[in-house]
Amino acid sequence: MTAPAPGTDGPSARPRATAQHYSVAPVPVSPEGYVAPGMPGAPVTGFEPAAPARRTVPRRRTALAVALSVLAMLLGGLAYGCAPLRAADSLGWLAIAPAGLVALPLGLLGGRNRLLPPLGALLAAGALLLGQLTEQLRRVHADGPGPRGLLPDALTAWRADLRLLDAAFYAIALIGGFLLTRRTAADRD
Score class of each variant (00 low, 15 high):
residue 83 A to K: 00
residue 81 G to K: 02
residue 70 V to C: 07
residue 68 L to I: 05
residue 62 T to W: 07
residue 80 Y to L: 06
residue 53 A to T: 06
residue 84 P to M: 12
residue 78 L to R: 00
residue 52 P to A: 15
residue 62 T to V: 14
residue 85 L to T: 07
residue 55 R to W: 06
residue 81 G to D: 04
residue 59 R to P: 07
residue 65 A to E: 03
residue 82 C to G: 11
residue 95 A to S: 12
residue 72 A to G: 05
residue 61 R to N: 13
residue 78 L to W: 07
residue 59 R to G: 15
residue 58 P to G: 14
residue 69 S to W: 03
residue 83 A to S: 06
residue 77 G to K: 02
residue 92 G to F: 08
residue 61 R to W: 15
residue 86 R to C: 07
residue 93 W to Y: 14
residue 56 T to A: 15
residue 66 V to W: 02
residue 79 A to K: 00
residue 65 A to N: 03
residue 72 A to E: 02
residue 60 R to S: 10
residue 69 S to I: 00
residue 85 L to G: 13
residue 94 L to E: 06
residue 80 Y to D: 01
residue 70 V to W: 03
residue 48 E to G: 08
residue 69 S to T: 01
residue 74 L to Y: 05
residue 61 R to Q: 14
residue 80 Y to M: 06
residue 86 R to M: 13
residue 49 P to K: 09
residue 90 S to K: 06
residue 84 P to C: 10
residue 91 L to C: 05
residue 52 P to E: 15
residue 87 A to T: 07
residue 78 L to G: 13
residue 93 W to A: 13
residue 81 G to A: 12
residue 63 A to R: 08
residue 88 A to E: 07
residue 48 E to Y: 12
residue 74 L to W: 05
residue 93 W to S: 09
residue 74 L to I: 09
residue 70 V to D: 03
residue 72 A to H: 02
residue 58 P to D: 11
residue 66 V to N: 01
residue 89 D to E: 11
residue 54 R to S: 14
residue 63 A to F: 14
residue 66 V to I: 14
residue 50 A to Y: 14
residue 70 V to Q: 04
residue 81 G to F: 04
residue 66 V to Y: 01
residue 51 A to N: 11
residue 72 A to D: 02
residue 64 L to G: 11
residue 71 L to G: 10
residue 89 D to S: 14
residue 71 L to V: 07
residue 59 R to Q: 13
residue 78 L to M: 10
residue 65 A to M: 04
residue 62 T to M: 11
residue 82 C to D: 12
residue 78 L to P: 00
residue 68 L to Q: 04
residue 73 M to I: 01
residue 68 L to W: 07
residue 74 L to C: 13
residue 80 Y to A: 05
residue 62 T to F: 10
residue 72 A to K: 01
residue 68 L to Y: 08
residue 90 S to E: 11
residue 80 Y to H: 05
residue 93 W to M: 10
residue 79 A to Q: 04
residue 77 G to D: 04
residue 65 A to Y: 03
residue 51 A to R: 10
residue 80 Y to C: 03
residue 72 A to L: 05
residue 66 V to E: 03
residue 59 R to M: 12
residue 92 G to D: 06
residue 57 V to D: 14
residue 56 T to I: 09
residue 80 Y to G: 02
residue 68 L to S: 04
residue 84 P to Y: 10
residue 77 G to W: 02
residue 91 L to I: 07
residue 75 L to K: 00
residue 50 A to N: 08
residue 49 P to F: 15
residue 82 C to R: 08
residue 68 L to K: 02
residue 50 A to E: 14
residue 79 A to P: 00
residue 60 R to Y: 08
residue 73 M to R: 02
residue 60 R to Q: 08
residue 82 C to F: 12
residue 61 R to Y: 15
residue 48 E to Q: 07
residue 49 P to N: 11
residue 90 S to M: 13
residue 86 R to Q: 13
residue 51 A to L: 12
residue 71 L to N: 04
residue 52 P to I: 03
residue 76 G to F: 05
